[in-house]
């Protein structure tokens, strides 16, 4: 068995991913800021100038609270899903614990997530919604979200080894999710019977929690936190189980 230093390996893999992504870019991490700002501008234009009948105040930060988690979720999930198949050289040559490959890929996305969260917080301050104690909830909700993405990625990355079509399923699911999570609309516009289901989707739950904390300056509701904790932990446990079951045959399928 592999008896190495998990943290040291994880750190090296995360740093590797981050460095190779930015080393040859002249603008470097600036790209992490540009994408959400451009999307924020476009969506604000569409929903305040083209369809001017929405009643949501502070629309730019409202939409940014949706875009930052959505971007993180889709990028981490898509890169994570293909990570095991793309690292076949590693999997077939080095007996490292296989779980570490998709998890490192998700965590390396967290580096630009950090930059985007900083952007979000700055925008919140610019729009005059000041600091408040409920900001302390931010690490909790983000932590749960990262746990959820890790779990989901463990499942899809293992399946992708056996059936390579899984990556296209994930890609399509991400396109669909842009409409099915409240990125640019308020949960209040969703009929009540559907709205309860939304809270079980950790991505929607996170977006709602962010808006409560940053725009309303309040603590997220305890039912929402419970549902978020429940589904994230469940998905992560399921991910570890599925990955463990499937990893034995990776060698034959890569």
């Amino acid at each position: 068995m592999w008896k190495g230093d998990y943290l040291f390996l994880l750190q090296n893999l995360v740093v590797k991913d981050f460095k190779i992504r930015y080393r040859n870019m002249s603008l470097g991490v600036f790209w992490s800021l540009l994408n959400p700002l451009v999307m924020m501008g476009a969506l604000t234009f569409v929903f305040t100038a083209v369809f001017p009948n929405n009643q949501i105040p502070n629309f730019p930060i409202f939409v940014l609270c949706g875009l930052v988690p959505f971007n993180f979720f889709t990028v981490a999930w898509q890169n994570g899903t293909i990570s095991v198949a793309n690292n076949a050289g590693l999997i077939k040559r080095v007996p490292v614990p296989r779980e570490i490959v998709p998890i490192a890929t998700v965590l390396s996305t967290c580096v630009h997530l950090g930059i985007q969260i900083a952007l979000l917080l700055v925008m919140v301050l610019v729009f005059g919604r000041g600091l408040n104690w409920n900001w302390l909830w931010l690490p909790v909700v983000w932590g749960l979200e990262i746990l959820f993405v890790c779990g989901l990625t463990l499942i899809t990355s293992a399946l992708d080894v056996y059936v390579r079509d899984v990556r296209y399923v994930v890609e399509s699911a991400c396109t669909l999710l842009f409409w099915m999570v409240p990125v640019f609309y308020a949960i209040q516009s969703v009929p009540q019977s559907y709205a309860n289901i939304y809270q079980f989707n950790p991505l929607s739950a996170l977006i709602l929690a962010l808006r409560t904390i940053l725009i309303d300056g309040a603590a997220p509701s305890s039912t929402l936190l419970l549902k978020l904790t429940f589904s994230s932990t469940l998905v992560f446990a399921l991910g570890l189980y599925v990955f463990h079951r499937l990893k034995r045959q990776f060698f034959d399928y890569l």
């Binding site: 040291f8 390996l9 090296n12 590797k16 190779i20 080393r23 040859n24 050289g89 590693l90 040559r93």
Partner: peptide, 25 residues
């Protein structure tokens, strides 16, 4: 060199490969 990456420097590759081969920090 299965764990090597062309865009990383020799030093970075040594540390990465060392951790893959179960060296501690």
């Amino acid at each position: 060199g299965s764990g090597f990456h062309p865009d990383l420097t020799g030093r970075e590759n040594i540390l990465l490969n060392a951790s893959l081969l179960a060296f501690s920090r």
